[in-house]
Structure formats: C-alpha cells, structure tokens
Write a protein that binds this DNA or RNA. Structure first.
Length: 110
DNA sequence: CCACTGACTACTT
DNA sequence: CAAGTAGCCAGTG
C-alpha cells in the first residue's frame, strides 16, 4: 500500500487541468509534504504508465522540464505545447501564467 | 533495519 | 547565470 502522501499526490496530479502545470514542490506541498518534491518525481516515473497520469504537467521550480533530451524531454514538451503551454526561447514555461493554483475544496477521489 | 537512489529545492559561491 | 551543497523522504533491495 501507498502512504497517505502518495495517494494525495496522485489525486492532485489527476486534477491538474489541461494547459496548466505544477512544480514538483507545489504538488508535494499540496499533498502535505512541503519537502517531498523528490517523491513526486518517483511517483510519476513508476506509476504514470499504469495509472495513466498526466505526468507531463509536472515541471521543476525553475519552470523548465527536468527530463533529459532523449529521455522524454521532447515528448513532454510536445504534449504541453499541444495543450497550449508556451515555451520561451530558453525552453522555460512562465509559471506566473501556467502554474495551476488549486481551488480549495475540489477533489475528485482517486 | 540500514543504505542507496532520485524527472527536486533553496541557498551560497 | 552556472555550479556546488546540504536537506529532503518514500520506495526498493
């Protein structure tokens, strides 16, 4: 079984709307662990396939994709762009525009 | 239980 | 802005 944190994290990730993104840190904080950013990355890595998660909507705090080229970077960028997310010249996403601010009281059960 | 590993972060050089 | 560093903590063996 997974921890409460992990379950909440999955729930959070499911709720990210199209065209919006969350940073690892924000996702972790929303799940109750302000310092659990690294757990988020592992969750995505190990469960995105079986759980059909919108893993591409998670980026790092600098507003950039953390994946390495040829390791999914291009795919993630393409998926985001297809949802309307714009990248700057330096492949950076403007968090002030695209960061998802989770509404209070709205959680779909996982 | 211990050790190790990260798709991380914030801070400091 | 780039590079190094010290915390971070659930999963895995």
């Amino acid at each position: 079984m997974y921890t409460r944190f992990t379950q909440k994290a999955l729930n959070i990730i499911y709720n990210i709307p199209e065209g919006k993104v969350l940073t690892y840190g924000r996702a972790a904080a929303l799940a109750g662990k302000p310092n659990g950013a690294r757990q988020i990355s592992r969750l995505l890595h190990s469960m995105s396939r079986k759980h059909d998660l919108p893993w591409h909507r998670i980026i790092n705090s600098k507003g950039k994709i953390s994946l390495r080229p040829s390791q999914g970077y291009e795919l993630q960028k393409a998926l985001l762009e297809s949802e309307g997310v714009k990248f700057s010249k330096s492949d950076t996403i403007d968090l002030k525009v695209y960061l998802w601010i989770k509404p209070v009281q709205m959680e779909r059960p996982y």
